[in-house]
């Protein structure tokens, strides 16, 4: 009845050698001279790099009054003069943001599963990884220019741009999350004789769901800010309004747009924080 852990403890007692021995963490680069050369080289490069930028103090000084005008515009943001444009731009932006996030998330879930090593292999894995890689290669502004050329000015080009961005972002991060899942939990569902879709629903989905919601909400936030930027190159939304006001030096209206963007970003930040807390 006694427990079987037959332990034969070898007695390796600590001998009382009190001699002071020092220890240092092994250095990344063992050779001291190479280490110093690396530091020195890095510092030299930074100095040279700053020198080649051609920092022009005169031009900086000349810009100060205009900056002052711009900043002073911020103290009296003008919501009314271009009120109609601003409202229209915001409705466009919010629509673009919501639609692109929902569609992008829906597309990226199957892509992420196909791009996770523990669920896909061979051609499926390669195709999914490639799609994600391509949609992450170009900055959103460049993609927006491309789609504006393709589909013409307006929010449709912006919508497609944001979907591409969302797929690249979520596909990659979600695939990594899936690869980090507990294999035991998935194996246990597999052992019941469940087919792949059911394994996904019962074994995988519960594991990645909080992260999916978190990433989706974060992307919603990014998409809104991004919609302001790509509007500048003609992809509709509040960015188009912002660009018009700036081009006409209407700094008070521009300030109104920026203030609204800040308010909305803060709002989404708070809402997403609240939702995430509820779910995890």
């Amino acid at each position: 009845m006694s427990p079987p852990d037959a332990a034969s403890v070898s007695a390796t007692g600590l001998s009382g050698e009190a001699a002071a021995r020092t220890w240092q963490r092994p250095r990344l680069i063992a050779n001291a001279w190479i280490r110093r050369a690396a530091w020195g080289g890095g510092a030299l490069y930074l100095i040279v790099a700053v020198a080649t930028l051609g920092v022009d103090f005169e031009r900086m000084a000349a810009g100060v009054p205009r900056a002052a005008e711009f900043v002073s515009g911020f103290f009296w943001p003008d919501f009314t003069t271009r009120g109609g444009d601003i409202i229209e731009g915001f409705i466009e932006s919010v629509t673009m943001t919501l639609l692109s996030t929902v569609i992008g998330v829906a597309l990226s879930i199957p892509l992420a599963i196909g791009a996770a090593r523990n669920f896909a292999s061979g051609p499926v894995y390669l195709v999914c990884r490639s799609i994600i890689a391509v949609s992450r290669t170009f900055p959103e502004v460049m993609i927006a220019i491309f789609f504006v050329v393709m589909f013409g000015f307006g929010p449709f080009a912006g919508l497609i741009t944001l979907i591409v961005g969302t797929v690249g972002f979520l596909g990659k991060l979600l695939a990594e999350e899936i690869e980090g899942c507990s294999t035991e939990q998935i194996e246990a569902i597999r052992a019941t004789g469940a087919s792949l879709p059911k394994i996904l629903v019962f074994g995988l989905f519960p594991q990645v769901f909080p992260r999916l919601v978190g990433l989706g909400l974060y992307r919603l936030d990014i998409n809104f800010r991004e919609s302001a930027i790509i509007g500048v190159v003609g992809a509709g939304g509040i960015g188009a309004t912002l660009s018009t006001t700036l081009n006409r030096y209407e700094f008070s209206s521009a300030a109104a747009v920026l203030v609204l963007i800040i308010v909305i970003v803060l709002l989404t930040e708070n809402v997403s924080g609240f939702i995430r807390q509820r779910l995890i």
Binding site: I189, G193, A194
Partner: peptide, 19 residues
């Protein structure tokens, strides 16, 4: 899968789906 249905498997305690 039909064969697996007839074979129950019990793993280490952490193989439940946590969430």
């Amino acid at each position: 899968r039909a064969a697996r249905r007839r074979i129950g498997m019990i793993f280490q305690a952490h193989a439940l789906v946590d969430r």
